[in-house]
């Protein structure tokens, strides 16, 4: 193994995950089971889709914190619209509606950032409260538990379910397929299309991108719209699986998502980020959020653990880079 392999964030995160699982299994053998795995997978779906979108934005050199608000907005509005018009709409049409709404809100971010060149963190902080405020003021602030039948159908659809020989119950929901789809699609865009390479290019150097003739604005616009569409998808999945359209949910999750992405090796300065790293980052965050107690740390320490992971996971490479720069000068 080359030295570079061991220095990569992905490798480090994977090692931490393996260590964590070893410890967890040692302290509670029941941890290592199909049940735990399927629970953790279920918990990763929404976070994973969010993270893929956030990663794309980081690669392009920006940051988006509004995606949770977009998700809730898209989910709640499409639920309300469906209930008010054609309650029997099949789930895939409700999902399409939510994705389209998400894309539209993402496009607004894209417009403000690409057209007017406003700082991405501040813009998306602003749109976060606009989207959320608009939803709660003008659409509604009631939790809706009688969802359209289509959404309930979706939450009941499984790829696989059953009981292992050891007697562990497991269930893999259809929503997992959505995550797989998003992962494959995003990987394809990033690695196999010129558009994807342009996203890396503008993240690497906006000035160089302009000089080789990349339409920087169009690429930025696409990135925020795509992140919005993914948020719309994640939102409607969250609503369906939780069997409730709760306008107060999800918002507040954005920092954990960005933490996962950054742990997975994406850099805030842009130009770096991989789908596989992001998934590893999500896995680590989900483990910490759900299974900290198994390794003997009370769950009240969850937030400390995630914070420390961010600081160590990003501080280590930053410190190495600083040392390298000092040596080179």
């Amino acid at each position: 193994m080359s030295k570079q392999f061991w220095m990569r964030n992905e490798t480090l995160v994977a090692l931490v995950i393996i260590l964590f699982c070893l410890f967890a299994t040692a302290s509670d053998p029941r941890f290592f089971s199909a049940t735990t795995l399927s629970d953790l997978l279920r918990a990763s779906i929404v976070l994973g889709i969010f993270a893929i979108g956030a990663m794309l934005v980081l690669v392009s050199g920006g940051i988006d914190v509004s995606f949770t608000a977009i998700a809730v907005f898209a989910m709640y509005v499409s639920t309300v619209l469906t209930l008010g018009t054609i309650p029997d709409l099949p789930w895939y049409l409700i999902f399409t509606l939510s994705i389209v709404i998400g894309a539209a809100l993402g496009a607004l971010n894209g417009l403000l950032i690409a057209r007017f060149g406003l700082p991405t963190l501040i813009v998306t902080l602003g749109t976060l409260s606009v989207f959320r405020g608009f939803l709660l003021t003008f659409v509604g602030s009631e939790r809706i538990s009688s969802l359209p039948p289509g959404m309930r159908d979706f939450s009941r659809s499984m790829i696989a379910r059953g009981t292992t020989e050891a007697g562990n119950f497991y269930a893999l929901p259809l929503a997992l397929a959505a995550l797989v789809f998003v992962v494959v699609l995003t990987w394809f865009i990033l690695q196999k299309t010129t558009l994807g390479r342009c996203i890396f290019a503008i993240g690497g150097s906006v000035e160089s991108a302009r000089r080789v003739g990349i339409n920087v604005r169009a690429i930025q616009f696409f990135v925020y719209m795509y992140a919005g569409a993914l948020a719309g998808l994640a939102g409607i999945i969250h609503g369906s699986m939780g069997r409730m359209a709760d306008p107060f949910s999800l918002v507040g999750l954005e920092l954990s998502v960005i933490a996962a992405v950054v742990l997975g090796g994406a850099r805030l300065t842009g130009g770096y980020g991989t789908v596989s790293g992001t998934l590893l980052g999500v896995a680590l965050i989900v483990l910490v959020q759900n299974s900290l107690i198994v390794v003997g740390i009370p769950s009240t320490w969850q937030s400390v653990a995630i914070g420390l992971l961010i600081l160590i996971g990003t501080g280590l490479p930053a410190w190495q880079a600083k040392r390298a720069a000092e040596r080179a000068a």
């Binding site: 290019a201 150097s205 000035e207 160089s208 991108a209 130009g271």
Partner: peptide, 9 residues
């Protein structure tokens, strides 16, 4: 002079 390359690619 700065070559306008993409360092990350």
């Amino acid at each position: 002079q700065d070559f306008s390359l993409f360092p990350n690619l």
